[in-house]
């Protein structure tokens, strides 16, 4: 087992752990930090699986898309009438 596979194993285990925490957490807003951990682990493993310069672009696109999604969910949730 070389260093690349060890790093991939760490990323995969952390992704599964954070996914279970996302499902178990009840509060909608407090789910989002755990989802952020999942997207960190996944964009790390995208580059670890395929070490190619285009993989940096793909990982950055996935990460920016994921944070943009979290941002949209959080701001729509905060725009509700009950929270103001």
């Amino acid at each position: 087992m070389n260093g690349q596979e060890a790093a991939l194993l760490v990323c995969g285990v952390i992704a599964i752990y954070a996914a279970i925490r996302v499902i178990l957490e009840k509060n909608t807003m407090r789910k989002l930090p755990f989802l952020n951990v999942v997207s960190f682990a996944i964009s790390g493993s995208i580059v670890l699986i395929t070490p190619h310069p285009l993989a940096i672009l793909a990982a950055a696109a996935y990460f920016v898309g994921s944070t943009f999604e979290s941002n949209a969910i959080a701001s729509t949730w905060a725009g509700g009438p009950k929270n103001e």
Binding site: V22, T28, K31, S45, I49, A55, A58, S70, I73
Partner: peptide
Amino acid sequence: DPFNKLISLGLLVAGVMPFLSDRGLLDVLA
């Protein structure tokens, strides 16, 4: 809750990405 459904869908999309990267489909991934 619809917001929880959307967050869980984000989890599903996250799981698809490493398979696309494994096949070398980086443009499809982006």
